[in-house]
Amino acid sequence: MGDLELKNITIGYGNTPVIRDFSLTVENGQMASLLGPSGAGKTTVLRAVAGLLQPRSGAIIIDGRPANGLPPEKRNAVMVFQKTLLFPFMNVEQNIGFGLQMQGRSTGEIRRRVEKILELTELTGLNRRKIHELSGGQQQRVSLARALVLKPAILLLDEPLSSLDATLRQHMRELIQDIQAQTRITTLFVTHDQAEALMMSQRVCLLLNGRIRQVGSPRELFYRPADPDVARFFGGCNFFEGRLKNGVYYSQYATVAAPGLSANGDRLTATIRPEDIRICADGNRGITGRVQKTSFEGTTTRIWVQCQDRVFVVLAPVTDLQAGQSVRLHLPPDKIRIFAAEN
Protein backbone atom coordinates (compact mmCIF):
# COMPACT_ATOMS: atom_id res chain seq x y z
CA MET A 1 0.00 0.00 0.00
CA GLY A 2 1.22 3.48 -0.78
CA ASP A 3 0.57 6.76 -2.48
CA LEU A 4 0.62 7.30 -6.20
CA GLU A 5 1.65 10.68 -7.47
CA LEU A 6 1.78 11.72 -11.10
CA LYS A 7 3.31 15.13 -11.72
CA ASN A 8 2.92 16.94 -15.05
CA ILE A 9 3.11 13.78 -17.11
CA THR A 10 3.27 14.07 -20.90
CA ILE A 11 3.11 10.87 -22.91
CA GLY A 12 3.06 10.43 -26.65
CA TYR A 13 3.31 7.92 -29.46
CA GLY A 14 5.71 9.08 -32.15
CA ASN A 15 5.31 12.82 -32.51
CA THR A 16 1.75 12.90 -31.24
CA PRO A 17 1.26 13.66 -27.55
CA VAL A 18 -1.61 11.63 -26.14
CA ILE A 19 -1.47 12.85 -22.56
CA ARG A 20 -0.47 16.43 -21.78
CA ASP A 21 0.60 17.83 -18.45
CA PHE A 22 -1.28 15.26 -16.44
CA SER A 23 -1.14 15.43 -12.65
CA LEU A 24 -2.98 13.21 -10.21
CA THR A 25 -2.54 12.03 -6.65
CA VAL A 26 -4.12 8.89 -5.32
CA GLU A 27 -3.77 8.67 -1.58
CA ASN A 28 -2.79 5.59 0.36
CA GLY A 29 -5.61 3.04 0.46
CA GLN A 30 -7.81 5.08 -1.85
CA MET A 31 -9.64 3.81 -4.89
CA ALA A 32 -9.61 6.33 -7.70
CA SER A 33 -11.14 6.07 -11.14
CA LEU A 34 -9.69 7.41 -14.32
CA LEU A 35 -12.78 8.06 -16.38
CA GLY A 36 -13.09 9.07 -19.99
CA PRO A 37 -14.37 8.07 -23.40
CA SER A 38 -12.49 5.60 -25.60
CA GLY A 39 -9.30 7.12 -26.95
CA ALA A 40 -9.00 9.69 -24.16
CA GLY A 41 -5.65 8.24 -23.04
CA LYS A 42 -6.72 6.43 -19.87
CA THR A 43 -4.88 3.18 -20.63
CA THR A 44 -1.82 5.18 -21.68
CA VAL A 45 -1.62 6.70 -18.19
CA LEU A 46 -1.99 3.28 -16.60
CA ARG A 47 0.71 1.78 -18.82
CA ALA A 48 3.04 4.61 -17.89
CA VAL A 49 2.46 3.96 -14.19
CA ALA A 50 3.05 0.22 -14.74
CA GLY A 51 6.30 1.02 -16.58
CA LEU A 52 5.16 -0.34 -19.95
CA LEU A 53 5.48 3.15 -21.44
CA GLN A 54 7.95 5.88 -20.66
CA PRO A 55 6.56 9.41 -20.29
CA ARG A 56 8.31 12.17 -22.23
CA SER A 57 8.31 14.38 -19.20
CA GLY A 58 6.96 14.55 -15.69
CA ALA A 59 7.41 12.37 -12.64
CA ILE A 60 5.78 9.14 -11.49
CA ILE A 61 6.14 8.60 -7.76
CA ILE A 62 5.05 5.27 -6.31
CA ASP A 63 5.00 4.90 -2.55
CA GLY A 64 7.21 7.97 -2.18
CA ARG A 65 9.89 6.73 -4.59
CA PRO A 66 10.45 8.07 -8.12
CA ALA A 67 9.67 5.30 -10.60
CA ASN A 68 10.40 6.93 -13.96
CA GLY A 69 13.50 4.95 -14.90
CA LEU A 70 12.44 1.68 -13.32
CA PRO A 71 11.42 -1.29 -15.49
CA PRO A 72 7.94 -2.73 -14.80
CA GLU A 73 9.29 -5.68 -12.81
CA LYS A 74 11.02 -3.33 -10.37
CA ARG A 75 7.96 -1.16 -9.72
CA ASN A 76 5.67 -1.78 -6.81
CA ALA A 77 2.62 -1.69 -9.07
CA VAL A 78 0.69 -4.49 -10.73
CA MET A 79 -1.68 -4.11 -13.64
CA VAL A 80 -4.83 -6.08 -14.44
CA PHE A 81 -5.51 -5.80 -18.15
CA GLN A 82 -8.75 -5.36 -20.06
CA LYS A 83 -8.35 -8.85 -21.49
CA THR A 84 -7.78 -11.49 -18.84
CA LEU A 85 -4.45 -12.51 -20.39
CA LEU A 86 -4.05 -15.60 -18.26
CA PHE A 87 -1.30 -18.03 -19.15
CA PRO A 88 -3.18 -20.75 -21.06
CA PHE A 89 -0.48 -23.33 -20.38
CA MET A 90 -0.91 -23.02 -16.59
CA ASN A 91 -3.80 -23.91 -14.31
CA VAL A 92 -5.52 -21.47 -11.94
CA GLU A 93 -3.13 -22.07 -9.05
CA GLN A 94 -0.04 -21.70 -11.24
CA ASN A 95 -1.38 -18.52 -12.81
CA ILE A 96 -2.04 -16.92 -9.43
CA GLY A 97 1.28 -18.05 -8.00
CA PHE A 98 3.26 -16.91 -11.05
CA GLY A 99 4.40 -13.57 -9.64
CA LEU A 100 5.40 -15.12 -6.32
CA GLN A 101 7.34 -17.82 -8.17
CA MET A 102 9.18 -15.14 -10.15
CA GLN A 103 10.10 -13.48 -6.86
CA GLY A 104 11.64 -16.76 -5.72
CA ARG A 105 9.18 -17.40 -2.86
CA SER A 106 9.12 -20.88 -1.33
CA THR A 107 6.56 -23.42 -2.52
CA GLY A 108 4.92 -23.44 0.91
CA GLU A 109 4.51 -19.67 1.00
CA ILE A 110 3.16 -19.62 -2.55
CA ARG A 111 0.60 -22.30 -1.71
CA ARG A 112 -0.46 -20.52 1.47
CA ARG A 113 -0.89 -17.13 -0.18
CA VAL A 114 -2.61 -18.56 -3.24
CA GLU A 115 -5.13 -20.40 -1.03
CA LYS A 116 -5.88 -17.18 0.83
CA ILE A 117 -6.39 -15.15 -2.31
CA LEU A 118 -8.54 -17.89 -3.88
CA GLU A 119 -10.86 -17.56 -0.91
CA LEU A 120 -10.90 -13.77 -1.14
CA THR A 121 -11.79 -13.85 -4.84
CA GLU A 122 -14.40 -16.61 -4.44
CA LEU A 123 -12.37 -19.13 -6.43
CA THR A 124 -11.91 -21.79 -3.74
CA GLY A 125 -11.76 -25.28 -5.18
CA LEU A 126 -10.74 -24.20 -8.66
CA ASN A 127 -6.98 -24.54 -8.00
CA ARG A 128 -6.32 -27.21 -10.60
CA ARG A 129 -8.82 -25.98 -13.19
CA LYS A 130 -7.44 -25.25 -16.66
CA ILE A 131 -7.97 -21.71 -17.90
CA HIS A 132 -10.17 -22.68 -20.85
CA GLU A 133 -12.45 -24.51 -18.42
CA LEU A 134 -13.31 -21.27 -16.60
CA SER A 135 -16.15 -18.85 -17.31
CA GLY A 136 -15.43 -15.22 -18.26
CA GLY A 137 -16.13 -14.01 -14.72
CA GLN A 138 -13.93 -16.68 -13.19
CA GLN A 139 -11.11 -15.83 -15.58
CA GLN A 140 -11.36 -12.17 -14.63
CA ARG A 141 -11.26 -13.11 -10.94
CA VAL A 142 -8.13 -15.23 -11.52
CA SER A 143 -6.57 -12.27 -13.27
CA LEU A 144 -7.41 -10.07 -10.28
CA ALA A 145 -6.18 -12.69 -7.80
CA ARG A 146 -2.89 -12.98 -9.72
CA ALA A 147 -2.28 -9.28 -9.15
CA LEU A 148 -3.57 -9.11 -5.56
CA VAL A 149 -1.45 -12.01 -4.36
CA LEU A 150 1.66 -9.85 -4.85
CA LYS A 151 0.33 -7.26 -2.38
CA PRO A 152 1.45 -4.35 -4.57
CA ALA A 153 1.60 -0.77 -3.37
CA ILE A 154 -0.54 0.23 -6.35
CA LEU A 155 -3.11 -1.88 -8.16
CA LEU A 156 -3.88 -0.75 -11.70
CA LEU A 157 -7.15 -1.97 -13.21
CA ASP A 158 -7.58 -1.35 -16.92
CA GLU A 159 -11.32 -1.75 -17.64
CA PRO A 160 -11.26 -5.30 -16.29
CA LEU A 161 -15.05 -5.64 -16.38
CA SER A 162 -15.75 -4.38 -19.88
CA SER A 163 -16.11 -7.85 -21.41
CA LEU A 164 -18.56 -9.16 -18.81
CA ASP A 165 -22.34 -9.21 -19.04
CA ALA A 166 -24.39 -6.80 -16.91
CA THR A 167 -25.16 -9.17 -14.01
CA LEU A 168 -21.65 -10.50 -13.75
CA ARG A 169 -20.29 -7.00 -14.07
CA GLN A 170 -22.31 -5.80 -11.11
CA HIS A 171 -21.18 -8.78 -9.05
CA MET A 172 -17.53 -8.12 -9.96
CA ARG A 173 -17.88 -4.42 -9.09
CA GLU A 174 -19.08 -5.35 -5.62
CA LEU A 175 -16.35 -7.96 -5.27
CA ILE A 176 -13.61 -5.50 -6.24
CA GLN A 177 -15.04 -2.94 -3.82
CA ASP A 178 -15.11 -5.48 -0.99
CA ILE A 179 -11.59 -6.69 -1.73
CA GLN A 180 -10.29 -3.14 -1.90
CA ALA A 181 -11.96 -2.31 1.39
CA GLN A 182 -10.39 -5.38 3.01
CA THR A 183 -6.90 -5.09 1.54
CA ARG A 184 -6.73 -1.27 1.45
CA ILE A 185 -4.53 -1.47 -1.66
CA THR A 186 -4.27 1.89 -3.40
CA THR A 187 -6.13 1.33 -6.65
CA LEU A 188 -6.34 3.25 -9.91
CA PHE A 189 -9.30 1.99 -11.91
CA VAL A 190 -9.74 2.87 -15.56
CA THR A 191 -13.22 2.86 -17.05
CA HIS A 192 -15.29 4.57 -19.70
CA ASP A 193 -18.48 3.79 -17.79
CA GLN A 194 -19.46 6.79 -15.66
CA ALA A 195 -21.82 4.75 -13.47
CA GLU A 196 -19.00 2.31 -12.71
CA ALA A 197 -16.62 5.14 -11.81
CA LEU A 198 -19.19 6.83 -9.57
CA MET A 199 -20.10 3.62 -7.82
CA MET A 200 -16.64 2.20 -7.25
CA SER A 201 -14.32 5.03 -6.37
CA GLN A 202 -13.77 7.62 -3.70
CA ARG A 203 -12.19 9.92 -6.23
CA VAL A 204 -12.88 10.34 -9.93
CA CYS A 205 -10.58 11.91 -12.50
CA LEU A 206 -12.27 12.77 -15.78
CA LEU A 207 -9.97 12.71 -18.78
CA LEU A 208 -11.11 14.25 -22.04
CA ASN A 209 -8.83 14.53 -25.08
CA GLY A 210 -5.69 13.76 -23.14
CA ARG A 211 -6.31 16.39 -20.46
CA ILE A 212 -7.80 16.24 -17.00
CA ARG A 213 -11.08 18.14 -16.97
CA GLN A 214 -12.11 17.60 -13.38
CA VAL A 215 -10.96 15.66 -10.34
CA GLY A 216 -13.13 15.22 -7.30
CA SER A 217 -15.53 13.03 -5.41
CA PRO A 218 -18.19 11.22 -7.45
CA ARG A 219 -20.85 13.59 -6.10
CA GLU A 220 -18.83 16.65 -7.07
CA LEU A 221 -18.42 15.52 -10.64
CA PHE A 222 -22.02 14.46 -10.95
CA TYR A 223 -23.73 17.44 -9.30
CA ARG A 224 -21.13 20.18 -9.75
CA PRO A 225 -19.51 19.61 -13.14
CA ALA A 226 -16.72 22.08 -13.88
CA ASP A 227 -17.82 22.79 -17.43
CA PRO A 228 -20.49 21.79 -19.98
CA ASP A 229 -18.29 18.98 -21.36
CA VAL A 230 -18.06 17.35 -17.95
CA ALA A 231 -21.81 17.76 -17.48
CA ARG A 232 -22.41 16.27 -20.90
CA PHE A 233 -20.18 13.28 -20.09
CA PHE A 234 -22.27 12.54 -17.01
CA GLY A 235 -25.50 12.52 -18.95
CA GLY A 236 -26.27 16.24 -18.89
CA CYS A 237 -28.35 17.17 -21.92
CA ASN A 238 -30.27 20.31 -20.95
CA PHE A 239 -28.18 23.43 -21.61
CA PHE A 240 -29.45 26.97 -21.96
CA GLU A 241 -28.01 30.43 -21.92
CA GLY A 242 -28.71 33.54 -19.91
CA ARG A 243 -27.13 36.71 -18.55
CA LEU A 244 -25.76 37.54 -15.15
CA LYS A 245 -26.81 40.83 -13.62
CA ASN A 246 -26.08 41.89 -10.07
CA GLY A 247 -25.66 38.35 -8.80
CA VAL A 248 -28.79 37.05 -10.49
CA TYR A 249 -28.82 34.78 -13.54
CA TYR A 250 -31.64 35.59 -15.95
CA SER A 251 -32.71 33.22 -18.69
CA GLN A 252 -36.01 32.76 -20.50
CA TYR A 253 -36.41 29.43 -18.68
CA ALA A 254 -35.41 30.29 -15.12
CA THR A 255 -34.14 33.02 -12.85
CA VAL A 256 -31.49 31.94 -10.37
CA ALA A 257 -29.64 33.75 -7.64
CA ALA A 258 -25.93 33.35 -8.33
CA PRO A 259 -24.09 35.21 -5.62
CA GLY A 260 -20.76 33.47 -6.29
CA LEU A 261 -20.51 34.68 -9.87
CA SER A 262 -19.31 38.12 -10.72
CA ALA A 263 -19.20 38.28 -14.52
CA ASN A 264 -21.75 41.04 -14.82
CA GLY A 265 -23.52 41.22 -18.18
CA ASP A 266 -21.80 38.13 -19.56
CA ARG A 267 -23.67 35.44 -21.40
CA LEU A 268 -23.30 32.22 -19.39
CA THR A 269 -24.34 28.63 -19.99
CA ALA A 270 -26.42 26.79 -17.41
CA THR A 271 -27.54 23.17 -17.14
CA ILE A 272 -30.03 21.09 -15.27
CA ARG A 273 -30.07 17.31 -15.05
CA PRO A 274 -33.04 15.56 -16.73
CA GLU A 275 -34.13 13.91 -13.48
CA ASP A 276 -34.24 17.32 -11.70
CA ILE A 277 -36.87 18.85 -13.99
CA ARG A 278 -40.41 18.54 -12.64
CA ILE A 279 -43.50 18.15 -14.79
CA CYS A 280 -46.08 20.08 -12.83
CA ALA A 281 -49.81 20.03 -12.76
CA ASP A 282 -49.97 23.62 -11.43
CA GLY A 283 -51.07 25.71 -14.37
CA ASN A 284 -49.24 28.89 -13.33
CA ARG A 285 -45.83 27.48 -12.47
CA GLY A 286 -42.86 26.81 -14.79
CA ILE A 287 -42.58 27.06 -18.53
CA THR A 288 -44.98 25.78 -21.12
CA GLY A 289 -43.95 23.11 -23.57
CA ARG A 290 -45.22 20.39 -25.84
CA VAL A 291 -44.22 16.71 -25.60
CA GLN A 292 -42.27 15.70 -28.69
CA LYS A 293 -41.78 12.03 -27.89
CA THR A 294 -41.39 9.65 -24.97
CA SER A 295 -39.23 6.62 -24.39
CA PHE A 296 -39.97 3.97 -21.77
CA GLU A 297 -36.80 3.04 -19.86
CA GLY A 298 -38.10 0.69 -17.18
CA THR A 299 -38.24 2.53 -13.87
CA THR A 300 -38.33 5.90 -15.63
CA THR A 301 -39.61 7.45 -18.83
CA ARG A 302 -37.54 9.84 -20.92
CA ILE A 303 -39.61 12.71 -22.26
CA TRP A 304 -38.53 15.25 -24.87
CA VAL A 305 -40.37 18.56 -24.37
CA GLN A 306 -40.17 21.46 -26.81
CA CYS A 307 -40.13 24.74 -24.84
CA GLN A 308 -39.84 27.82 -27.02
CA ASP A 309 -36.65 27.34 -29.07
CA ARG A 310 -35.16 24.57 -26.93
CA VAL A 311 -35.88 20.89 -26.30
CA PHE A 312 -35.63 19.80 -22.68
CA VAL A 313 -35.11 16.15 -21.81
CA VAL A 314 -36.92 15.07 -18.67
CA LEU A 315 -36.55 11.82 -16.76
CA ALA A 316 -39.76 11.15 -14.88
CA PRO A 317 -41.38 8.20 -13.18
CA VAL A 318 -43.54 6.15 -15.50
CA THR A 319 -46.04 8.48 -17.11
CA ASP A 320 -48.86 8.28 -19.61
CA LEU A 321 -47.89 11.47 -21.43
CA GLN A 322 -48.32 11.31 -25.19
CA ALA A 323 -46.56 13.13 -28.04
CA GLY A 324 -48.24 16.47 -28.81
CA GLN A 325 -49.58 16.91 -25.29
CA SER A 326 -49.06 20.28 -23.63
CA VAL A 327 -47.16 20.29 -20.29
CA ARG A 328 -45.52 22.73 -17.89
CA LEU A 329 -41.93 22.21 -16.73
CA HIS A 330 -40.49 23.50 -13.48
CA LEU A 331 -36.73 23.98 -13.31
CA PRO A 332 -35.89 24.20 -9.58
CA PRO A 333 -33.33 27.03 -9.20
CA ASP A 334 -31.28 25.07 -6.65
CA LYS A 335 -30.74 22.32 -9.23
CA ILE A 336 -29.50 24.63 -11.95
CA ARG A 337 -25.76 24.74 -12.39
CA ILE A 338 -24.30 27.88 -13.99
CA PHE A 339 -20.87 27.66 -15.55
CA ALA A 340 -18.44 30.49 -15.07
CA ALA A 341 -17.38 32.22 -18.26
CA GLU A 342 -14.11 30.92 -19.73
CA ASN A 343 -11.30 33.42 -20.02
Partner: peptide
Protein backbone atom coordinates in the same frame (compact mmCIF):
# COMPACT_ATOMS: atom_id res chain seq x y z
CA UNK B 1 0.63 -9.14 -24.33
CA UNK B 2 1.56 -12.09 -22.13
CA UNK B 3 5.09 -10.74 -21.88
CA UNK B 4 3.71 -7.41 -20.67
CA UNK B 5 1.70 -9.28 -18.05
CA UNK B 6 4.90 -11.09 -17.08
CA UNK B 7 6.70 -7.77 -16.68
CA UNK B 8 4.08 -6.37 -14.34
CA UNK B 9 4.11 -9.66 -12.41
CA UNK B 10 7.80 -9.11 -11.65
CA UNK B 11 9.30 -11.61 -14.12
CA UNK B 12 12.79 -10.68 -15.33
CA UNK B 13 13.95 -10.97 -18.94
CA UNK B 14 15.24 -14.57 -18.62
CA UNK B 15 12.24 -15.63 -16.59
CA UNK B 16 9.89 -14.18 -19.23
CA UNK B 17 11.68 -16.16 -21.93
CA UNK B 18 11.63 -19.49 -20.11
CA UNK B 19 8.28 -19.19 -18.31
CA UNK B 20 6.20 -17.31 -20.91
CA UNK B 21 7.73 -17.20 -24.39
CA UNK B 22 8.81 -20.84 -24.64
CA UNK B 23 5.55 -22.35 -23.31
Amino acid sequence: ELLEVGKTLKAGRRQRFFYITLP
